[in-house]
Design a protein around this nucleic acid. Structure first.
Lengths: 142, 142
DNA sequence: GCTTTTTGTGCAATTTTTTTGCATTAAAAG
DNA sequence: CTTTTAATGCAAAAAAATTGCACAAAAAGC
């Protein structure tokens, strides 16, 4: 079963309906391997002319609620969204000059601290977001 | 010399003028011990009726450029700003239900990874942002 | 299949946040 | 105290996020 199909199934299991818009959104989310803004989604091949921006907005919102999508700040004025895949936690490296965004492959070093925080503060449903910002080699030169 | 005075001096050294608005903003930034949105700043005692929102916006922008203020995403729709103090790096713990934001005191565990990234990618001016999200004890109950 | 119920969708409009233009004012420099 | 340059207020524009509502499509029941 393809990733999109299994995501659709997972979405259905948590109460969403299987619609063209949702399928197109999942295709987009799985194809584009980086967080994207609402605007980027609606101009992406898989979604453009498939459905309205408001629809994508509401779908992303629902998927965030269901824990299938994560909303990121990333310093920009618009919010970014990215799929949450099992066994995959991603930190990002962002160039504040050209805006490039790349996931970091190194193991994330904050899980231990997160455990401590859970114990000490009593927070539940804990997760974290870690981003590195700087000037990429290209932008450093100019 | 007070913190505000030394910040004003530092700002002046990097090309800004000593104005009432800037002083009021620094007072606000040093008094309120958490990142705040533009809206929060302009309704804060120290700034309200002291200067226009556009002025605060432009000052924050300049201070970000000078490296004296940091702009944070924090998952909300509005951007947050916070003072960058020497020898102080802050990570945050945020409740996604009630929106509370508190700085974390534990030593930040990502400096080592940051060094590796610097070496491997050639990025310059590197810094990072780390936030933990979850439901605080209060919000976990309900 | 067909009908009912419930949820999703498009479109337009609204709200919120961010950003800019421009005439005026204030700070710094000489 | 004049000149130069940067900062400010106000209003308006641009960008992003969000909502209302009539209609369409999916799921559920028969």
């Amino acid at each position: 079963m393809s990733l999109v199909s299994s995501l659709l199934q997972q979405a259905k299991d948590s109460g969403l309906r299987r619609t063209k818009a949702l399928e197109a959104l999942f295709t987009c989310l799985t194809t584009c391997d980086r967080p994207m803004t609402l605007n980027e989604f609606t101009t992406c091949n898989h979604l453009a002319s498939q459905c309205d921006k408001a629809t994508v907005f509401r779908l992303l919102q629902k998927l965030c609620d269901k824990g299938m999508v994560r909303r990121l700040g990333l310093h920009e004025r618009a919010a970014y969204f990215t799929l949450i895949l099992p066994d995959q936690h991603r930190d990002y490296l962002i160039c504040t000059e050209c805006g490039s965004i790349e996931p970091i492959n190194a193991p994330c070093p904050v899980h231990k601290l997160q455990e401590e925080i859970r114990k000490e503060t009593g927070f539940t449903n804990l997760y974290h977001e870690l981003e590195f910002f700087g000037h990429c080699p290209k932008c450093s030169k100019s």
